[in-house]
């Protein structure tokens, strides 16, 4: 989505204007055209797997297997209706629950941590930051059996809250790192001014800093949502019939003894729609948020 968004503007208006940089003149003529073609070609390469997925979703199983793939065919809704008519809704509900609840928790827990590590650095801030990110270095496959046994011990297998807790833990380090860089963007003068006016710490956080950081928070939230929405490994291992999420539903279409490309493509298209919609709505904030660090 971001590939087609307008060019990023300078971030928060409250931050000092970036140092004047001579603007490169727009290229015209052959060079400009070549650049446009190249940009489109690269964009097409990136979007082609998704395009193939959407096209295949409207084919029959037989048509999906042709080599080379066909681009002109009689479209059918058979696969899409097949996907929606099965038990789609409980999986969708579980995915929404796991994604949104874990993202909300990440923001609630991650914001104060990022504040402490940027505006009011604690002792050994760097070590703390490294400790946060080091939790991402252990391959998840190494912890899945202990997690399974622990969850079974407290009867939390196949419970959506297990996934909420795990996704929160999984995304928290990334969120802290991201939001810390956004906090660093906030000019210290603004904070000092607010404190001089007598604003309490929560007030400064809520009414001064967060509005400036809103695009950054939106970007962080969206990234956490994407990671949680697509997470498969924990979901497949720690759920069964009650708490399974969409990726688990999706993988059920894969079979080792038959053709399944069209069905799987239809399920994948339907499963990716919510996140595409959220990304599209938040597109402008995202571009601003993700380029916040870049204009420093």
């Amino acid at each position: 989505m971001t590939a087609t968004a307008p060019a990023p503007r300078p971030a928060a208006a409250a931050s000092p204007p970036p140092p004047a940089r001579p603007r490169r003149p727009r290229r015209g003529g052959a060079g400009g055209a070549a650049l446009t073609v190249l940009t489109w070609a690269i964009a097409l390469v990136f979007v082609s797997p998704a395009l193939w997925m959407v096209l295949t979703a409207f084919k029959t199983e037989g048509a999906a297997q042709t080599d080379p793939p066909t681009f002109f065919f009689q479209p059918t809704l058979e696969q899409i209706t097949g996907v929606l008519s099965a038990d789609f809704l409980p999986y969708l509900g579980n995915s929404l629950m796991a994604t949104l609840a874990s993202t909300a928790l990440v923001l609630v827990l991650g914001t104060p941590a990022a504040y402490a590590l940027s505006i009011r650095p604690v002792k050994r801030t760097k070590d703390v930051l490294f400790f946060f990110i080091s939790t991402k270095m252990l391959p998840v496959v190494a912890v899945v059996v202990p997690l399974y046994v622990a969850a079974a011990e407290v009867s939390m297998i196949d419970n959506i809250w297990t996934l909420v807790v795990l996704y929160t833990a999984m995304n928290l380090p990334i969120a802290v790192w991201m939001m810390r860089s956004f906090f660093l963007e906030v000019p210290s003068g603004v904070i000092e001014a607010a404190r001089l006016e007598g604003a309490s710490l929560p007030r400064v956080l809520w009414s001064v800093m967060l509005p400036i950081m809103a695009p950054g928070v939106a970007a962080t939230a969206l990234i956490c949502m994407i990671f949680s929405w697509n997470e498969f490994f924990f979901a497949v291992n720690l759920t069964a019939s009650q708490a399974a999420t969409l990726p688990v539903y999706l993988v059920g279409f894969i079979t080792s003894e038959g053709l399944y490309w069209a069905q799987l493509a239809a399920a994948a298209t339907v499963a990716s729609l919510p996140i595409v919609i959220v990304g599209w709505i938040a597109q402008r904030q995202l571009v601003r948020g993700l380029s916040m660090g870049a204009v420093k």
């Binding site: 809704l89 949104l100 923001l107 809103a214 939230a221 708490a243 904030q285």
Partner: peptide, 29 residues
């Protein structure tokens, strides 16, 4: 004027989403 009350739209939206998630997830479960 940090003391002036104003709505925080991004956060309000997130809060609403969280509530929706809890409701939807709760219903699904």
């Amino acid at each position: 004027l940090p003391t002036k009350k104003r709505p925080l739209r991004p956060l309000a939206a997130l809060g609403a989403l969280g509530t929706a998630a809890a409701l939807l997830g709760g219903c699904a479960g």
